[in-house]
Design a binder for these strands. Structure first.
Lengths: 263, 263
DNA sequence: AGATATTTGTTCGTATGTATT
DNA sequence: TAATACATACGAACAAATATC
């Protein structure tokens, strides 16, 4: 009724048909547009709830639902107290991977699917970071490798070692300056961490996997130290191929094992 | 800095306060767990609001915010009316790409970043689908190619043609049975569609880009028709390298053009 | 340390909208 | 048309968190 407000993002023909979108979702989009138009950056503050209620002509509950939508998308964050409020945030990498993980929860990729990509992406990464590591960086990587330098004593250590191996690759990503390649490599690593079939493999002794991985990583570091991108790429490729063969082999073993157990 | 690696899958305590997370967000997680535990599949119905209020001991507003969170994640969809309610949904590919797009909105990858990946992913895709296309599929692809068979008459048609070229690649993805590779290829395509710098390039005449792309695609279809995976991979690789060179060249031209304009 | 002001977080009662029967 | 079952929306009151004095 009251057209007192000069809202720049007012939907023009929104009076009649609603296109399957809730009011809170529509308002969330309006707020998003409002943020973009004003050029707000991460850290900047949004108006308080009261003002948003007035500006977007919606009740407190609706505004809150809209803010929750934006918070879920990782674009804002709310804090209570004086000086508090809702602030623009850059969607973090880990949050983005969580959200994307929901998609593959239903797609259910196989180990082969994932390694088909690691096989080509990780070598590209390795080649790209050659010449970018300082001595301190090599130390950091070697520290991680110490975790799985010796054979594990129990299954708990076994699992920790497998995760540390993935951490090794995750650290390499730190030195990559292609954000898309970086994200994709880390995401594949997180898929391996979370896939139930991988969890089962990681919870079982894999002496060969550890030893072979370790030797490839030693060779990789040597290549990176002499800034030999070509060698780094080739070593990483072999590393991934070997790991894939190993994982798929174990997967097959586990499958027959589980088939034998009556469920 | 960020959270450490030791995040136990089991929540610390029921009813206790988890810092940093709103009640609606916590309840959203509880509902999600509840869905997983019951093994609910897309299409299955959740209890009504009233029952959720009782089951999760929260008010209507809080439950609604929680459902909005799940809806934003693409895991749930609400419908009004009798027989309505809230239903489990599989996160769609397009929704997942939207959510991930928010991440790269702040990362701002360059054309070079994107093509560095297309250069290795698209050839892999091309090789993977060799032998999977029927004659009807080739017809479908050739129909798309007709859109940019002839030089564009105006800038509007120019843009339509560039998008059709991306559609061509998107259709190829349909025949890929690696869901991760499929998603990544489509996502890179969507980045190209949405990046402002690309939009500017696409809005300007690029006669060479069209002609070169068309010839590569013709050769690609020939290779796919004779089910020659190796040739398909090589042709696609060259296609991507050429496109990258072209795009980066145009980008440079645009940049100098924009630099000359006084701010 | 304690009081206070500010801002989000939560609840509840009520009313409206929508689609099926 | 009317009855219904359900989500959607509103607003006022109250609770919790947190910075500042």
């Amino acid at each position: 009724m009251s057209e007192t407000l000069d809202s720049p993002v007012t939907p023009p023909e929104e009076g009649g048909k609603r296109r399957g979108k809730n009011r809170p979702v529509r308002i969330a989009e309006e707020i998003k547009d409002w943020i973009v138009i004003r050029g707000l950056k991460p850290g900047d503050r949004l108006p308080g709830e009261r003002e948003l209620i007035g500006r977007f002509q919606a009740s407190k509950g609706t505004i809150r639902e809209a803010l929750r939508v934006l918070e879920t998308q990782g674009l804002v964050r709310s804090r209570t107290g004086p000086g508090g409020g809702t602030f623009v945030e850059a969607l973090s990498e880990s949050r983005a991977m969580e959200l994307l993980g929901n998609y593959f929860f239903f797609q259910n990729p196989t180990i082969g699917d994932i390694y088909a990509l690691r096989r080509i992406l990780e070598p590209e990464l390795a080649a790209g970071i050659a010449g970018k590591l300082e001595e301190a960086d090599f130390k950091r990587l070697e520290q991680i490798m110490q975790i799985y330098e010796d054979p594990p004593q129990d299954l708990e250590e076994e699992r920790r070692q497998r995760h540390a191996e993935l951490d090794f690759h995750s650290i390499l990503v730190d030195y990559c300056d292609n954000p898309v390649l970086a994200f994709m490599c880390r995401f594949l690593q997180s898929l391996l961490r979370d896939l139930t079939v991988c969890k089962r493999i990681y919870d079982v002794p894999n002496p060969d996997l550890r030893e072979s991985g370790l030797s490839y990583q030693v060779r990789l570091l040597r290549a990176l130290r002499r800034e030999d991108a070509k060698a780094a790429r080739e070593i990483m490729f072999e590393h991934m191929c070997t790991a894939q063969r190993y994982m798929e082999e174990r997967e097959a073993v586990l499958q027959t094992k589980f088939l034998q157990v009556p469920d």
